[in-house]
Amino acid sequence: MDVAHGAAIRAENLGMKGPRGWVFRGITLDASPGALIAVEGASGSGRTCLLLALTGRMKPTEGWAEVAGHRVPRKMAAVRRISALGPVPDVTDLDPSLTVAEQLRERALLRRRYDGPVRALLRPRAERAARTRSAVSAALDLVGLDLDTLPKGPRTSVRMLERLEELRLSLALALLADPQLVAVDDLDLKLSPAERDEAWELLRTIAASGVTVLAVCSEAPSDAIRVPVPSSAGQNLAPDPAARPGATEHTAPAQPQDAPGDGTDTGVDSTDPPEHRVDPPGPDHPTDELPQQDTTQEGAAGAITEAGRA
């Protein structure tokens, strides 16, 4: 893991509207690199859609945002390349059938094959394995996850992990992509007050390393940059007659499940999902944009699931 700096984030009057009303609206933000940003709101307020918009995974319909100098919505592909998703339900869920070591190794294979530079494939196998081990070790150290302390060590099944252990593993996987921005959804879900404090301390550690952290929560700590999302954004608004019908699902190419290994049980992030399109590129859809997601408070879950398939 070799992060040079975090991503500065700016937003002005950012909003997203679907056929039944606003998902979120009027979001303004100015955060420096390495900041800890808390998107605060009730469940169903559109806070997850805001997180996905600021990481280039969903297209806003009003205002603008700028992440590491890349303007949203016009440069969403560039934003996806420098951002990574930690735990986001229905988008980056861990595979409960895998062990922790297998989850890490799978990410390593996917990143080396699809996200890494082509010249990296020309390096000797031993060198590639050493680089992978080094990157994984650095990420695990940063998130404070010691595999030897798990019930069965690296062979511990993902389904056996506690909530905080899942959080640490998901963040380690995200950090392996060397992102400038890491995003976490529902940070305080199913956590006791003591565990919540521990989770925020984990995010502070990541932010202190230079990576900008964006976290969705129901209650933000006092030292975070607070971005409130009103819970009434998508309620009681008439349908927008100009809104397009729901997007047609396009299934992304299947990823390989097995690939020749290099003797390591560790892995790297593949958090930058391929784009999916509905309309052909044109004046209204530049080639590095995603189509508008028609989401409301009622339909946000379907749009999030769509983003996860992309």
Score class of each variant (00 low, 15 high):
Ala4Arg: 10
His5Arg: 13
Gly6Ser: 08
Ala7Asn: 02
Ile9Thr: 04
Arg10Gly: 10
Asn13Arg: 14
Leu14Trp: 01
Gly15Arg: 03
Gly18Asp: 10
Val23Glu: 07
Ile27Trp: 00
Thr28Phe: 01
Leu29Phe: 02
Ser32Ile: 08
Pro33Val: 11
Gly34Cys: 07
Ala38Lys: 06
Glu40Lys: 04
Ser43Arg: 12
Arg47Ser: 13
Leu51Thr: 09
Leu51Glu: 06
Leu52Lys: 01
Leu54Lys: 02
Lys59Thr: 15
Lys59Val: 12
Lys59Ser: 14
Thr61Ser: 15
Ala65Asn: 04
Glu66Val: 14
His70Pro: 08
Val72Thr: 09
Pro73Asp: 05
Met76Arg: 10
Ala77Gln: 12
Arg81Phe: 02
Leu85Ala: 04
Leu85Thr: 04
Val88Pro: 00
Asp90Val: 09
Val91Asn: 02
Thr92Val: 04
Asp95Arg: 02
Leu98Lys: 09
Leu98His: 14
Glu102Ala: 14
Glu106Ile: 11
Arg119Met: 10
Leu121Gly: 12
Ala126Asp: 12
Ala126Ser: 14
Ala130Asp: 12
Ala130Ile: 02
Thr132Phe: 00
Arg133Val: 04
Arg133Asn: 11
Ser134Glu: 15
Ala139Glu: 07
Asp141Asn: 12
Leu142Tyr: 04
Gly144Ser: 03
Gly144Cys: 03
Leu147Ala: 00
Asp148Thr: 13
Pro151Cys: 03
Lys152Glu: 15
Gly153Pro: 07
Pro154Val: 06
Ser157Gly: 15
Met160Ile: 02
Leu161Arg: 01
Leu161Ala: 02
Leu164Arg: 07
Ala172Ile: 03
Leu173Phe: 02
Ala174Tyr: 10
Asp178Gly: 01
Gln180Ala: 13
Asp185Lys: 00
Asp185Cys: 00
Leu187Asp: 04
Lys190Tyr: 08
Ala194Lys: 10
Glu195Phe: 02
Asp197Lys: 11
Asp197Phe: 01
Ala199Met: 09
Ala199Asn: 08
Ala199Trp: 10
Glu201Val: 01
Glu201His: 12
Leu202Asn: 01
Arg204Glu: 14
Ala208Leu: 08
Gly210Leu: 08
Gly210Asn: 09
Val211Ser: 00
Thr212Asn: 02
Thr212Trp: 02
Val213Leu: 07
Leu214Gly: 00
Ala215Asp: 06
Ser222Val: 13
Ala224Ser: 06
Arg226Val: 13
Val227Ala: 06
Ala233Gly: 07
Gly234Phe: 10
Gly234Asn: 11
Gln235Ala: 09
Gln235Gly: 00
Asn236Gln: 13
Asn236Tyr: 13
Leu237Trp: 15
Pro239Met: 05
Pro241Asn: 05
Pro245Leu: 03
Pro245Lys: 00
Gly246Pro: 13
Thr248Tyr: 00
Thr248Val: 14
Thr251Glu: 13
Thr251Gln: 09
Asp262Ala: 05
Thr264Asn: 01
Thr264Val: 15
Asp265His: 03
Asp265Asn: 08
Gly267His: 04
Val268Glu: 13
Asp269Asn: 13
Thr271Ala: 13
Glu275Ser: 12
Pro281Asn: 08
Asp284Thr: 11
Thr287Glu: 15
Thr287Asn: 08
Pro291Met: 08
Asp294Ser: 10
Asp294Cys: 06
Thr305Arg: 15
Glu306Lys: 05
Ala307Cys: 11
Gly308Arg: 02
